[in-house]
Design a protein around this nucleic acid. Structure first.
Lengths: 231, 231
DNA sequence: TAACGTATACTATCGTTTAGAGTATGTCAA
DNA sequence: TTGACATACTCTAAACGATAGTATACGTTA
């Protein structure tokens, strides 16, 4: 019953899912692979490990069921689990983070062979297309009334809206970047840099009013765990 | 000299940085904290560990320098390292991935107390503002001609363009989502779901032409390591 | 001139997480 | 009855993160 170990966001992600309805571990792993993968990617084995620990901590109840001779465990959230979940909801979420190897490829451009960076960015667009196709399928599932947790479309629609827009933004950028790269061959580094300055000037973000007195330090919005501040 | 262990993307990120010029480990850790953090976030200790292994594998050369009695090691890429890097550039990049706890918070909305999800999304916007401020500072640094690797603005400008657009997209979404959440109080779940259907219909992604015969399986664009396919 | 705070430059350790393979049972179609 | 595929997990090495700790250098202030 007592919560020994500190819970991770992965714990809460599972508690969240289980707060909506009971699931078997296999189903949870499936949901993770199909949907959660995009916002909170975790290995399949981590799901199995994690629910077991949640059960040990008394935050979820496991019930063995049988399909023929094959057993499976169906979990549901416990009162203690729901309380934990509610407490988590009073803490600020950890900030948006990403891994984008495509950008690493771009950074090596000065020492890459012609075409290598281009190929990487084309791959980025291909991946994006694949994900957009998936998003389109999910959109259609909900429009057809056969989406997962269809009774919560009012929540899920916002998630689909998020992804479609995000993927389009990334794709638009990749297209722009490919356009620029195509010009590199016929321009010197100096010419490219001059052009870059006007691209920079048009980047949709305000520059600081007073010149930053010195190079700002390491960004701080790292991991958080405290409650929301005062108001 | 022989590469025993399989290199990770973290290895290649460091090789990339070292291919542009030599850096001390401390500088590499600093660059990682300041810039790479956003595309390939790794712990400081991981940087120190990794360069040492790259040195052991003969992919980088370390030279001890002294400031008084305090030693530091400055690394530069070796021929073998450059060859490895070039091979990596011939492999497709791993797909874009993210962690977005804010979305997890949204998913629990049906069991959350009023205001909890709203607070989470406001935090998302605050974090975004912070990152946008940082992007603005970096933009100004390059416009002033004092950015890191300023002679490569033609590459770095594209990265700043990426971030500004991405952050704006996330922020716009969060604002839209907050607008929707504000309506929840005065509407039943049925009314919310009805509204969600029209939001869904306007999501900027095409739905599949032929109805997806069955629920599509686990997305495949998982980790890759092979070369680009044929042509 | 001593003390203090901050930046530099790391090392060490422990626990967690991932990737990937492996095991075993059940279902269905050819 | 064989094989493909889905279900339902377990196991392990290597990668990674968090945290603490050590030590030197340098500038400011008391």
């Amino acid at each position: 019953m007592s919560t020994q170990r500190r819970l991770t966001t992965t714990s809460y992600a599972l508690l969240s899912q289980l707060s909506l309805r009971p699931w078997s571990t296999y189903e949870l792993a499936g949901q993770s692979a199909r949907y959660f993968r995009y916002v909170w990617p975790r290995a399949e084995s981590a799901i199995y490990r994690e629910v077991k620990q949640l059960a040990k901590a008394g935050l979820v109840d496991g019930r063995k069921e049988y399909v023929g001779r094959r057993a499976r465990t169906v979990y549901s959230i416990s009162k203690a689990g729901l309380a934990e979940l509610r407490e988590w909801l009073d803490t600020p979420p950890s900030p948006f983070a990403m891994e984008f190897e495509g950008m690493l490829r771009l950074f090596v451009a000065p020492v890459a062979e012609a075409g290598q960076v281009e190929a990487a960015l084309k791959q980025v667009r291909a991946d994006n297309q694949e994900m957009l196709t998936f998003a389109g399928e999910v959109k259609q599932e909900y429009l057809d009334g056969r989406g997962a947790l269809q009774d919560q479309v009012y929540v899920r629609a916002l998630a689909i809206d998020f992804f479609a827009n995000l993927l389009n933004t990334v794709d638009d950028w990749a297209a722009r970047a490919l356009d620029e790269i195509a010009r590199w061959d016929s321009h010197s580094v100096e010419e490219r840099n001059e052009r870059a300055m006007s691209i920079l000037a048009q980047v949709p973000v305000d520059t600081p009013a007073q010149p930053t007195t010195e190079t700002p330090v390491v960004p701080d919005s790292q991991r958080r765990s405290a409650r929301y501040p005062r108001g």
